[in-house]
Amino acid sequence: MKRLLWPLLVLAALLAVNLFFTPSFFSVEMKEGHLYGSLIDILRFGAPLILVSLGMTLVIATGGIDLSVGSVVAISGALACLRISEDGGVFSAVVLALGLCVLLGLWNGFLVAGVGIQPIIATLILMVAGRGLAQLITDGQIITVNSPSYKVIGGGYLLTVPFGILLVLVVLGVTAFLTRRLALGVLIESVGGNAEASRLAGIRARGIVITVYAFAALCAGVAGLMISSNVSSADGNNAGLWIELDAILAVVIGGTSLSGGRFSLGGTVLGALIIQTLTTTIYSVGVPPETTLLVKALVVAAVCLLQSPKFRDKVFRRAGPPSSPRPAAEEKVRVTA
């Protein structure tokens, strides 16, 4: 909990800034049986990023990285919309899109764990090729669909709450159960801490690495469905663009080390909410669009610095415990010698 203190304070500060510029920021209303409000919008629009970040957390926990999740987001939405535009079958479109995403994740895991390619290179291959594949699926055009059933995934409501929020809660709950209630989380951390030692201990490190990459691609695929269904269209060129960088930032802000080992799912969710709230704050404050990315980078850098104990020690000049004086007898013996 201690390592989440600064992210919590930053999130509270961002919410306070929004409240200053928008007095009704915290208000939540019920309209036509649905919940509406700025806080609900942050959760709804931040849902895809939370999903991608959850998958990225497990990948980073094994000591890897996945730069291809943005392209997988685009592929998922493009394939689902293409399928729906051809025969209108939402269920088959979703299954086909998520199935392809899992295969892409298995490919990443095979390159990393099976072939031994560095994760940043292995996923960079799919990052470039995947974006091209998404544009091939859409034929370089924006595919528009008109399906109320598909619209529910990213823009629908269930029990007065946006369906995307409920979907994120389900994925988060399943992930937390598998990694914290079962031994999977310990195995992932052991592989990330020392892959060779875990292998010698009898842990199938390759299988775990392949599994987490497949899970990351699955999360990205669901996020792609949410993004495309929310706007009822698929854009192979811009969908999910740079979401992989936001996901990595969310994981780092949440306290997970890029070197692998221990990870925090709750911290990742908090980091994703910070990024989404920051985006909302930038628009509400009226920051010029051309400086949005710069402001976002500065805030994220400040959060990461505040999380560093060494940085806080230097800036706030926290003095260490005073050294105990050397006993006189010990000093005399030292001088005599």
Rank of each mutant, 00 (worst) to 15 (best):
A74Q: 03
W242S: 11
R204T: 04
M226A: 05
G173S: 07
I248M: 11
A78F: 13
K2S: 14
T62R: 00
A183Q: 12
L124A: 10
A301D: 04
V300I: 11
A74C: 07
A302R: 04
S147F: 00
S284V: 06
L273P: 03
Y157T: 00
K296S: 14
L49A: 02
G64S: 12
G260F: 02
C304Y: 00
L241F: 15
A319L: 10
F45Q: 15
A183H: 09
V191A: 09
A13Q: 03
K296R: 12
A250G: 07
I65Y: 00
R131Y: 02
I253Y: 11
T160S: 15
M56H: 11
G89C: 09
L19V: 01
T57D: 15
I210W: 01
A78E: 05
M56T: 05
G202L: 10
T62A: 11
G156K: 04
I84P: 10
R181S: 07
V115L: 13
A122Q: 08
G105M: 08
K2D: 15
I42A: 08
S68L: 04
P162I: 00
V315E: 05
I142W: 01
G156E: 03
E196A: 11
I50R: 04
T179E: 03
C304H: 00
R199S: 15
L98A: 07
A301H: 08
N237H: 04
V90H: 08
Y150N: 07
V171H: 11
L178A: 15
T336H: 07
V72H: 08
L200Y: 08
F20D: 11
R326Q: 10
L265Q: 05
R318P: 00
R206T: 11
I42N: 10
V222F: 02
I137E: 04
R326L: 14
K296Y: 14
S233V: 01
F263G: 09
G37K: 07
S284N: 14
S259Q: 12
T160Q: 11
K2Q: 14
L158T: 09
E86N: 13
I84D: 10
S233C: 07
I142G: 01
T211C: 11
E331S: 15
S232N: 10
N237T: 11
S264C: 08
V170K: 02
A74L: 06
S27N: 09
D313Q: 14
D139Q: 14
V115T: 04
T62L: 04
R180S: 12
L79V: 12
G207P: 10
S233H: 04
F25P: 14
I165T: 07
V285K: 03
